[in-house]
Simulated scan of single mutants.
Amino acid sequence: MPDSLAVRLKQLVVSTLKLDDLRPEDIPDDEPLFGSPKFGLDSIDALELVVQIEKEFGVKIGSSEESRKALASIATLAAYIRSQKPGA
C-alpha cells in the first residue's frame, strides 16, 4: 500500500514546481530530487518547495543544511515531516 504522505508530497512537488511533463507516480520515493538530471531542480525550486511545505504541513525547515537533508528525496521529506509533526 502506498504511503499517503509520500503520494501527497509527490503531488505537491509536481504542482508547486509546475513539472507538467512528470506525473507524481513517476517519482520514486528514494530518488534524489536535486542533482538528478531526471528532475533538473535547482535552489530556486528548493526554496519554492520549502515555502509550500511549511504552508501545507505547518512544519518549519530551518537552515540550508536542514533543508538539504530533508529535501534529499520524497522518503527523507516524508520522514522529516513525520519527525516534526507526529501523526502526519
Rank of each mutant, 00 (worst) to 15 (best):
V59K: 09
I61A: 06
F39A: 03
V7T: 08
A75D: 12
E48V: 03
E31G: 07
K18V: 13
F34C: 08
G87K: 02
T16E: 07
E65W: 12
R68L: 15
D29N: 11
A78S: 03
D45Q: 15
S73R: 05
L77Y: 00
S64T: 13
D29W: 05
F34L: 12
Q84L: 12
D45W: 14
D20V: 01
G87L: 00
I44H: 02
S67G: 10
Q11C: 10
V50N: 04
A75E: 09
A46E: 01
K10P: 00
K55M: 11
R82A: 08
G40K: 01
S83R: 05
T16K: 01
A70T: 00
G40D: 08
D42R: 07
A79F: 09
L33F: 07
S67V: 07
G62R: 06
R82F: 04
V7Q: 06
P2W: 09
K55R: 15
E54L: 02
A75R: 11
L47D: 05
V7K: 04
E25P: 00
P28K: 02
S15K: 14
F57L: 04
D30I: 02
T76P: 05
V7I: 14
L17I: 07
V13S: 03
L19K: 03
V7P: 02
E48P: 00
P37Y: 10
S36E: 08
S63R: 10
I61M: 07
A72W: 03
K38S: 13
R82W: 10
Q84V: 10
V51P: 00
L9C: 08
S83Y: 00
A78Q: 01
S36N: 07
A6L: 11
Q84N: 05
T76Y: 03
D45N: 14
V51L: 14
I53T: 13
S73G: 01
D20I: 02
D26A: 09
L33A: 12
S63E: 15
I61C: 04
L47N: 09
I44P: 04
A6V: 13
K85T: 09
A72D: 04
A78P: 01
I81L: 08
K69A: 05
P24N: 04
K18D: 14
D3T: 11
Q84C: 14
S43L: 10
K60G: 14
K85D: 11
L17N: 01
A75V: 13
D29Y: 06
Q84D: 12
D20P: 00
Q11E: 15
A79G: 08
D21C: 10
I74Y: 02
L33G: 03
E56C: 05
K85Q: 10
T76K: 06
Q11T: 14
E54D: 06
Q11R: 08
D26E: 14
L47T: 12
P24Y: 04
R68H: 07
V59C: 13
A70E: 13
L17F: 09
P28I: 04
D42I: 11
A70H: 01
T16P: 01
S67I: 07
L41H: 06
T76V: 05
L22Y: 13
F34P: 00
E48L: 12
Y80N: 03
S64H: 09
S73N: 00
F39K: 07
G40R: 05
K85G: 02
P86F: 03
L5D: 09
V14Q: 00
G58M: 11
V7F: 13
